[in-house]
């Protein structure tokens, strides 16, 4: 069955949809967690510490966190590889453009591809910035995420990269959530409006929620 799914354009798209929805679920949780920064360093740092102790005593220290990380890496890789393979196939299937071409025809598809590439680069930068600290601007200290976040958003490029990526996430989810419903066969004429509304609301809430943090730092609400 795995072979049938991976070898078919319809199946590979389903892999994209499921991995995309897993990432989407994670983003919702992540966004809510980020907002704790508005309650001060104590609460935010405590929350970050708690992430490492979730599930104890059944789970050992950091096991739950690592489990989530593994699921996310699998989702990102599955999503990116299928996106790459499907996009290559799509471009090959339509080699010559119309002389009289209409830009609208590929607007959503192009934004998804460019947005996806921006997101892939952002994910790498983001992990190196705030998880490992390799590209961090200040003196990165693990266990002190509040200060690390403030440092990142105290640089112009930290803000710029982050804002661009969050706008890309919003656009990606706007088309992606609705698309995933179609790919998984749960869309229908009667549900179309509801699905589009949920997609727009999710995109807006996530973008606004994520952007609240750099805006908070820039306006010194968080410092």
């Amino acid at each position: 069955m795995a072979r049938t799914v991976w070898d078919s354009t319809v199946g590979k798209k389903a892999v994209m949809a499921v991995s995309g929805l897993i990432m989407l679920l994670y983003l919702v949780v992540h966004m809510i967690g980020n907002l704790k920064i508005f309650f001060g360093p104590g609460e935010f740092n405590h929350y970050a510490h708690w992430l490492r102790t979730v599930g104890e005593p059944f789970m050992h220290h950091e096991w739950t966190l690592w489990l989530v990380r593994v699921v996310l890496v699998v989702a990102v890789v599955a999503h990116a590889v299928s996106a790459y393979q499907l996009s290559r196939r799509d471009i090959k299937a339509r080699p010559s453009k119309y002389v009289h071409s209409k830009p609208r025809a590929s607007y959503a598809t192009r934004t998804m591809r460019w947005g996806g590439i921006i997101l892939a680069l952002f994910i790498v930068w983001h992990v190196l910035d705030l998880t490992t600290g390799h590209v961090h601007s200040g003196g990165f200290e693990s266990g002190k995420p509040y200060q690390n976040v403030v440092d990142t958003f105290s640089t112009w490029y930290g803000n710029a990269v982050y804002i661009v990526a969050m706008l890309a996430v919003g656009l990606h989810i706007r088309h992606g959530f609705w698309s995933a419903a179609q790919t998984l066969g749960v869309g229908s004429r009667t549900r179309d409006r509801a699905l589009k509304t949920v997609a727009n609301v999710l995109a807006l809430l996530l973008t606004a929620g994520f952007l609240a943090v750099p805006v908070g730092v820039m306006t010194q609400v968080v410092s």
């Binding site: 078919s8 354009t9 607007y107």
Partner: peptide
């Protein structure tokens, strides 16, 4: 669907 893929058609991106 298998034949459709075999013929070299692209995949759906729900552009509409």
């Amino acid at each position: 669907v298998a034949q459709m893929d075999e013929e070299g058609f692209g995949g759906c991106t729900l552009a509409g």
